[in-house]
Write a protein that binds this DNA or RNA. Structure first.
Lengths: 258, 258
DNA sequence: CAGTGGTCTAGACCACGCT
DNA sequence: GCGTGGTCTAGACCACTGT
């Protein structure tokens, strides 16, 4: 039996007290915590100890840190539900001729409230991507990089790829046609292909430097990365990687059994 | 335009070099990295700097740390695919009378190779749980805590709840009947209810102390938590929380559109 | 500019795993 | 018992954010 520590670690004591204040509402969402030097004085600990305590709270998702500004309680933000039935809705919209994309469905924003940066490239498939498509490595792809914003705020980065052979010379290969009403589903529909299923594999990790800058992610916040394969029967028509702030999304998958 | 740093941070240099060694195979999976004091000497930096570098690699999932042992490159372990069609398979097994549970389906292990700790409680529904069931807070539930192991190694913790009214006096309320061939699906089937859909909401976070101990999670590894609702038409028959090591699972959702 | 967090140093004592 | 990482102290200089 390990002897329980007589003295709980100081950094945990500090973290516990700060957590208590946040949960009690003494430090309401969005409010700045005391600065590191203030906390050093308040708890009579070294700065390293204060920083350990704050790192713990960051890893719990309770606080965010921004340089020059400070550490603050996680603000309440509307969390975006990324539901599996969004693709069904998208398909219905396409068939009925309505506007929208799965992005606008998730965000519940008007089509007009979002904008995106886009960059198209023609690249050979890496081994990993070729595997997801089920083609030979080196097969040429149209790779489309997007940065979505709502009301000017960056929300989502994605890379979507389609076989170049499929889209070369079509309106899909023209960046100016994005955003395309109805999204991928509509694009494939315009080529005569109806999406039959979508496979999504979500993973979580810390953001890369590029992602931190592009999505303006504060310290301690991780990202969700969804690897998506768009199927037309057994054929993979599109492979995408979608990156979002983990604290702004809630994934929701409904599995029908009957 | 911010001036790019002339001198990259030392801890990043250390992390970059260690990362290079791992990716180049110089430090193969499972191999110990040099100890912190060795790294201090090798790179001529203070211990805090070495520890920052290792913390970065941990957050990237490249290395794991265990006290008294050291920091080592992440070993290659068979990753368990948690596929959405596991419930379909389970339902088919139940109908055909075969043994197994979705856990054994995921793990691809024999029914006999796994064991579990179990603890049953009768508790009133908290507000959050009641909301997931769509009942009044305080409604009595049978709460079943499980710790699954394969070949003795802890793999998964879960808490599964069913309305007490539904299961009181039935074999489901008897702990000795676990593990129950066919799992939840079979249990509900035995009461005359056929599962029609499953809703899963996955989230990621750092493990609690309890989870770290129960699942023997090394430093830097996070957990996946799946909130599951088992539906019989519009009625929620079960609410579960499933906790797994994030580096040992790959979530895989297939969304049928036709 | 003052104040914030980011990085870095150079010590120290401790709990834990292995042999 | 020895070496590992975990925790803690007390300094220092820097970059970034706001006023």
């Amino acid at each position: 039996m390990p002897t329980p520590r007589q003295q709980p670690r100081r950094y945990r004591q500090v973290a516990d007290e700060l957590r208590r204040r946040i949960e009690a509402g003494t430090t309401p969402p969005g409010a700045l915590l005391p600065s590191e030097s203030t906390l050093m004085a308040e708890f009579s600990v070294a700065r390293g100890t204060v920083r350990e305590a704050l790192a713990l709270l960051r890893s719990e998702g309770l606080v965010l840190t921004e340089v020059g500004r400070g550490t603050y309680a996680r603000p309440i933000v509307p969390v975006r539900r990324v539901a599996s039935d969004r693709y069904r809705k998208e398909l219905e919209q396409v068939r009925s001729g309505e506007l929208g994309t799965s992005f606008t469905v998730d965000q519940q924003v008007d089509w007009s409230a979002y904008s995106l940066d886009k960059e198209f490239r023609e690249v050979p498939a890496t081994a990993a991507i070729a595997d997801l498509f089920g083609v030979e490595p080196g097969t040429m792809l149209l790779e489309r990089h997007f940065l979505f914003r709502t009301h000017g705020v960056p929300q989502q980065m994605s890379v979507s790829r389609m076989p170049l052979e499929l889209v070369a010379g079509t309106p899909i290969a023209v960046p100016e046609n994005e955003p395309w009403p109805g999204g991928n589903t509509a694009q494939l529909h315009s080529l005569g292909h109806t999406v039959t299923s979508i496979r999504e594999r979500p993973t979580w990790r810390m953001p890369t430097q590029e992602e931190t800058e592009a999505l303006r992610i504060p310290g301690g916040v991780s990202v969700v990365v969804i690897t998506r394969q768009t199927y037309v029967h057994d054929w993979v028509a599109e492979v995408a990687h979608i990156v979002m702030r983990a604290d702004r999304v809630e994934l929701d998958y409904l599995i029908h059994l009957d």
